[in-house]
Design a protein around this nucleic acid. Structure first.
Lengths: 97, 97
DNA sequence: GCAGTATTTAGATGGTTGTCTAACTATCTA
DNA sequence: TAGATAGTTAGACAACCATCTAAATACTGC
């Protein structure tokens, strides 16, 4: 769950799309997989990367696994990016630290 | 200069550090190279990636090449990240669109 | 034009990554 | 407990990437 893990995770377009889909609320692995033209195994790999970065959380519900966006870490990532800017140029409202 | 170019560019820690150094104002290729433990050729590669993403601009000054942060694109990148969040949760001040 | 300095380009290499197929684990239901 | 469904893990492979050395380009000053 390092900074590098986060940036690596969001560097892939499929994974960014997954995060975007999780906007709309939690989804099962199967529901997410349907939205993409890759195998479930590949999707599972992407989930693992996102989980390693703590960008998503998983919870088993019966036979299915439900993924949920971890908005806190995503906000942190945005903050990290904004930190690359000269101070005071842009800042998220209510940024921590 | 696509979205993907931007995210790929910032996925590397060395390049993020370069951007951070450019916080403090423009620097020559040589000045930037000094700050890292890699060859100048490798640094030149990183500059090219950052330029392709339009995150930095270059200008020749005599024998040297001066690199400058393109804050506009960096702000856009942060906005793209924040767009992965459920609407209204976080937003940079004065975000376009 | 030549020597020296600053930087980039070319080509090679080892490591990482996204994808696949096949096999495995976990859960539910009859 | 057997079969079906949902998802992950293992292993392989091609493509990509960060890095290196060596060579080339661009500029300056003599």
């Amino acid at each position: 769950m390092s900074t590098q893990d986060i940036f690596k995770a969001i560097s892939d377009p499929t994974r960014r799309q997954i995060l975007k889909l999780l906007h709309g609320g939690s989804r099962t692995a199967g529901q997410l997989a349907e939205a993409f033209d890759v195998t479930k195994a590949s999707m599972s790999h992407h989930f693992a990367v996102l989980k390693a970065a703590d960008l998503i959380r998983s919870e088993r519900r019966g036979q299915q696994i439900v993924y949920t966006l971890n908005t806190t870490v995503l906000q942190d990532a945005a903050t990290l990016l904004l930190d690359l800017l000269p101070r005071g140029l842009a800042r998220p409202r209510g940024a921590r630290r």
